[in-house]
Each structure stands twice: as C-alpha cells, then as structure tokens.
Amino acid sequence: MKSFETYHPIVLFVYFVSVIGITMFFMHPIYVSLSFLAAVLMNSILFGAHFWKRSWVYVLLFLGMAIINPLISHNGEMVLFYVNHNAVTVEAIAYGMAIALMLLAVLLWFKVYNDTMTSDKFIYLFGRIVPVFALVISITLRLVPLFKRQIKQITQAQKTIGMDYAVGNIWHRIKSIVHIFSILLTWALENTIETADAMKARGYGLPKRTTFSLFRFELRDTIVLSLIGILTIGTVVGSFIGNTTFYFYPTFSPIEFNWYNVLFYIIYTMLLLLPVVIELKERWQWRSLQSKI
C-alpha cells in the first residue's frame, strides 16, 4: 500500500474507522466474507510471503473460535446430534464460524491499520483535537527507548561497584535489579522536571503557537475522503433498509440477491477495495509514464 499510505492521516483514519466499524458490527454473512477476503488481500499485498507463511495461525484461530459457539449455544432448529442432552445445531455452528470470520477480519484489518497509521500520524491527528493527550503519548513513546538506554548505562556503572545483576545468588540479583530500577527512577523524575521547565521556557502552552508537520491536505485527499464518505453512507443506508440484517436463530434468514441487495454489496466491496484500486492506479500511471519516455 505504498500509495495509500501517502494520503493525509485523516483520510487513512476515517477509512479504517469506517471499514473496521462496519466489519465489527454487521454480522451478515456476505458482508463478513467480503471484509475478510479484502483484509486477506490487503495483508498479502502488504506482507506478501511473510503473511502466508504465518497463515496457519489464523486457520487455527478460526477453528478454535468456531468450535466454542456450538458448545455454548444450543439454539437453532437443524439439530445434528446431541452431546450430554444438549443439541448441536447447524445454526450454532454457522454462527460460530461467522463470528470467527468476523474476528479474523477485524484482526487482519488492524494489522493493516498498525502498518499504515504509524504513531507519528496518530499523534499528528490527535494533536489538533486533544493536544495534551497527544503530547503525553508522544513523550511516553519517546521515554521508553530513553529508559532502555539509561538502564544499560546504569547497569554498566553498577557493575564496576560490584552490583552486577547477572552474577551472585538470587537475593543479590534481585537487590541489584531493584537498585538499578531505583536509580533509573530518580534520574527519570529529575529529568522530567527539567524537561517540563525547558518546555515552559520555550513557550509551551502559550496561545498562537504553530506546529510543524509534513502532512498536507491536497485535492486528492478531498477526493478520496469524499469517496470514503459516500461509500460509507451508502453502506449505512443499506443497513437501515435492512440489507445487513441476518438472523442465525431460530433458523437462517434468507440471503437475497435482488438488484438493490447486490447494489449495496457492490458499494461495500468498492469501499473495501479502495486502497487496492488506488495502488493499482498508481502502478498503472507509473508504468504508462515510463513507456512514454
């Protein structure tokens, strides 16, 4: 998704909220399957062979989650057999599989999200609405590697005075670790105050401060954002009409393929495949530009 990634963070965020939200909350078999297939496609484009090599994990997850439901739920009309006088029904199995597929789809979409919405984009996005919140997240993210480095330094210094946590009996080791931690903490807290004062000295919190960012909202962002908006609204309208309604219990409600049902399926598919389409378009453009030279 090299080209989809380059869009403005707000476009990416709205896209993921829309897709993951719809995936999570509509349990219609067609919608769930479409989302799952799209998520698999996105993951294989993003991670390639690495994704397929690990795909057995998802198959196991799917089977594990699909088995749980028929064991807990005994609703449904089509009884297959009885376990301890409890009916195991086709409906419960199908529901378990649908839920498992939905959870996998959400999991796979979040993998795409984690890869695309890097923390800098997240912080940029929320820095506008909730600046302190974004600031705390960014400071916390920065402190973690800083702590790691400081721990290394403290450990080395402690070694020279015989407080090596890797040697000696268990009590000595624990004592050394607690010692290192205690030094880290003192340093971190004093350092915090210094940072805070430095921030204040540089005018943090004053009005009319500008922030630097590399993200620009361009025409193409407007186009894609409105596309996402239209397709999402289309899907939600479909849901109001009842297109996403599907009952597993007491028995399956029919899946219809009237022209308007199919229209809403197509709208949802378009929403799901938007990043792939953008990617293909960019690649095609690149190739056609090359051939002209």
């Binding site: 909730v130 916390t140 807290l189």
Partner: peptide
C-alpha cells in the same frame, strides 16, 4: 482526558504522568 487537557499549563504534572506510563510500558 478532558481533565488532562485542562492541565495544559501544568507541564510538570503532565510529564509525571508520562513518566509513570512509560515505566509501565517499559
């Protein structure tokens, strides 16, 4: 998070919370 937003001028308090969070993340 709203009450956090209102701490915007109390940089030291904000940073203390960040340090504690960073400790638990680490």
């Amino acid at each position: 998070f709203i009450s956090l937003e209102q701490k915007r001028t109390q940089t030291r308090e904000i940073l203390l919370i960040a340090v504690m969070s960073a400790l638990s993340v680490a």
